[in-house]
Write a protein that binds this DNA or RNA. Structure first.
Lengths: 136, 136
DNA sequence: ATAGCTGCAAATGCTTTGCAAGGCC
DNA sequence: GGCCTTGCAAAGCATTTGCAGCTAT
């Protein structure tokens, strides 16, 4: 994925998000090159490195707003922190438990068959597969 | 699974754990009836309800010691808290994101094929499948 | 006796919240 | 102008840690 600034502005507006400086700059980091996995802490550090002035609270707010707007997907791999993925399509992950590196697995490279019915009164929302890996 | 007090003592000793009052009582709650999913907070509350005097820090320590000893398995379903499962065999989970209820799926009722190779220099440790469900 | 446990309180790390000031439409 | 956003600091949780006192072996 490749997006220029205009595409990114349009993306935000199309999801009903106002164009504030912080949102445009964070969206630039996230969506310019596509396919990224970040935590709030990582994104805040990266923003600072790039001369973007934004508070940590705003990074959290923005990640959640983008998630609600369907631009990001939350991933639960690690009970210590929340990861966000710019790839919102159905797919799965490798998670390196030593260096906390997350890698996508294209959906069509994993097949999952869940035979049992979900618990009474519930319906399946989605299936997450995390393949935990460690250095060899 | 069904264990009486003697079985439980033997279980702890066989894993090299000293028989302290707190460990025996917590192990009683966890392993007497088998197949349970708990968080530290839940286990501490249950202990209190059962008149077991134990600090929250000891509950955390004990859960980790039991995990290291292979009596429990950590589960990452929810980035807000850590779950522990008394079922240490390979299997997967339904997770109800509304009421935070975890249910086992026997391994033989799920088939997963991961085709791509893990990232360079890593080997697969294990595969976790979480089927997220919501009330219908 | 001594290595290992426990309990408490304080500390930590991630995340959320309250609120005043500022910015977008 | 009015509503949404931002930043800061404080608060909130889950979890870990330091350490003095206790306990299993």
């Amino acid at each position: 994925m490749q997006n220029n600034d205009d595409d990114i502005d349009e993306l935000l507006v199309s999801r009903g998000l106002r164009l504030t400086r912080q949102r445009r700059q964070l969206a630039g980091l996230l969506f310019r090159d596509g396919d990224r996995h970040v935590t709030a802490e990582m994104l805040a550090r990266e923003a600072k490195r790039n001369g973007i002035r934004v508070s940590l609270a705003t990074v959290y707010n923005t990640l959640h707003q983008f998630t609600r707007a369907g631009l990001l997907r939350r991933i639960n791999v690690d009970s210590a922190r929340t990861w966000f993925d710019t790839n919102t399509t159905v797919h799965h992950h490798f998670f390196n438990t030593s260096n906390l590196e997350l890698t996508d697995i294209p959906q069509d490279r994993v097949s999952v068959d869940v035979l049992p019915a979900p618990p009474d009164g519930t319906a399946i929302d989605h299936v997450d597969v995390v393949v935990r890996v460690t250095p060899r």
